[in-house]
Nucleic acid binder design. Structure first.
Lengths: 341, 341
DNA sequence: TTGAAAGCGCTAACAG
DNA sequence: CTGTTAGCGCTTTCAA
């Protein structure tokens, strides 16, 4: 009663049908070697007995897993959960399963997970690195060993890699230029940092626009502080404390914008009436606070899809593949409620 | 150059150190058989060469994977991404990796994923079923085969299972009773359905309270429609079209509440000034729209943790384990901004 | 304390 | 078209 009933094996089917294991194995994979009749008989029996192949054994002998490994910093985060979902969907469509691991923004966990995935013999890895990842040696080694690897959104600054990112610099530039053209005299930037490509490039795009238009920068209004809710919340509170409020804020992420919104709410500052905010994010987020922010639209779904496309290319053409960096365009989405303000 | 360099195997280490594979294998696992000295030498070399055990081989021979399989309907959803994250974290703390699969609310995909996970020889499964899952045969079979399985939040209505759920009925009851006690005469309920335990029980809790207080129900204000944003959005629009607006709405989920919010926004109805809304959700969501909704607080983190705790119990004590249904309490969180209204 | 042999369940290569 | 043989890389007896 309480003993685990042994699952049915290839061999069991073989014994029942009085054929060899190989015949069964081939029949189940629709191998042309096997007659249609035999194939049908085998499949029927397999179905009847609820036969499930043992993945471990299968992968061990075929040295192929049909698995894609994924490492992301977080799950419960608008941007990442959207990317994850699109990667899972795209992989699934191509008969690949995805094994997800979470680095929790910790470089050490990231490394451990990468090793775990390698030891699971993933056919390929898709990675979005942590903010603190500075040692790229392991990625270097992976590339040398010709294990397909693609970075999404957050990528190490390193030659010879394949990546799918968005045009962060251009997005930040456009969002800043928009504000300048609109005639705002008080422009702030909240969130981000220069530790990682996305922060670096958004900062660069911002400053580039400011410089191009000879805009004088108020250092009190330029605040890094990371990419989370707290970056926005604390950033806005600190600006408020200094007395002078900006008219426009470029928020580094959607969570940061929400943090700003919350701080503003607490302080009696109205968004978007008193301050217009643009943040990086996805237009699907707009449901959450209708028509309050502008967005530098990040095509999350496409990011995931392209990453999968790339990794499959690497998997399927290991000999001819050349590293590729795909940069997706962003769009500036302006909310009507703001323009009316 | 373009040839995959073979990963180092146990045997390679053995050859180098002039000992047998077994010695290496044991040494790496700190087996007491092996002398401290040998163990140290082995580990040193393994480190140096970057040896990574082959998971497939390991699992195949040990018939244990240290893997927990997880099946959820969605990822990019407040509730699920929070649950997923907490399950990953709890499993990780216990040296288990989690393999996540997404059913996309489709019963067929769910079944396929379950089979995939079984074939991967998961040590246990954690599942939150889809809204359309009506055939529980596969779960029945899993239980019969003594594969540990735990349902979180969404569980089939079936004896002998282990599950971790929240007290949906009680939460809905409390949220409804609160509105009645506050003196509201116009109470609505938007979202949900009776296909699945969570919808059924929330409906029951709502009607129970209404009945207990002899409250006359306006059928126009009782709208099912599922658990997503659109349920709230369409639900509110349809109520609005009928002319009479409620004073209070019990929204079935947080996305549904956001849908209501968006519809109200478009129609010029103010939340929370014109209508007070309570929704099922997690208090961490409150950052998103500060102090606008009340919450029937679902302890997402605890849900995940308890599910992992349960599954580990089943894995570690297969002989003595008895099915267990854990029901977590909800709290009603009232927003101050509402009480001031 | 160490090692040789057998096997986990499957697939690939070759033979019949 | 079917079967035999030999592994995949590791762990688990059991013997030395």
């Amino acid at each position: 009663m309480n003993r685990k009933t042994k699952p049915i094996r290839l061999e069991d089917l073989a014994n029942i049908l009085k054929v060899s294991k190989v015949t069964i194995s081939k029949a189940l994979r629709d191998h042309p070697d096997i007659s249609a009749e035999t194939t049908a008989r085998v499949k029927e029996l397999a179905d009847e007995l609820g036969y499930l192949p043992n993945f471990m054994a299968k992968n061990l002998s075929s040295l192929k897993s049909n698995l894609i490994g994924l490492v992301v910093p977080e799950i419960a985060h608008f941007f990442f959960s959207a990317i994850i979902e699109s990667i899972f969907a795209a992989a699934s469509k191509n008969k690949y399963e995805t094994v997800l691991t979470v680095s929790e923004e910790k470089a050490e966990k990231e490394k451990n997970h990468v090793q775990f995935l390698l030891s699971m013999k993933m056919d390929g890895l898709i990675i979005s690195i942590t903010q603190e990842t500075t040692d790229f040696a392991i990625f270097q080694k992976i590339i040398q060993h010709n294990v397909p690897i693609v970075f999404v959104d957050r990528a190490p600054d390193m030659p010879g890699i394949s990546s799918v990112t968005v045009n962060d610099r251009g997005g930040a530039f456009a969002a800043t230029e928009y504000a300048i053209n609109k005639g705002y005299n008080k422009i702030a930037k909240i969130g981000g940092n220069n530790n990682i490509n996305i922060g670096r490039q958004r900062n660069e795009g911002f400053f580039e626009a400011m410089k191009l238009y000879d805009y004088k920068i108020n250092p009190d209004w330029i605040i890094d502080g990371g990419f989370g809710h707290e970056a926005g919340y604390n950033g806005f509170k600190s600006i408020y404390k200094n007395g002078k409020l900006p008219e426009y804020i470029l928020a580094i992420t959607y969570p940061a914008a929400l943090g700003i919104y919350e701080a503003a709410y607490e302080l009696g500052v109205r968004i978007p009436q008193d301050i217009e905010i643009t943040c990086f994010g996805n237009n699907t987020f707009k449901h959450i606070i209708p028509t309050v922010f502008n967005f530098v639209d990040q095509p999350t779904q496409k990011l995931g899809e392209e990453a999968v496309k790339l990794i499959l290319k690497m998997i399927n053409h290991p000999k001819t593949y050349e590293p590729e960096k795909i940069v997706l365009d962003t769009k500036l989405l302006i909310n009507n409620s703001n323009t009316i303000t």
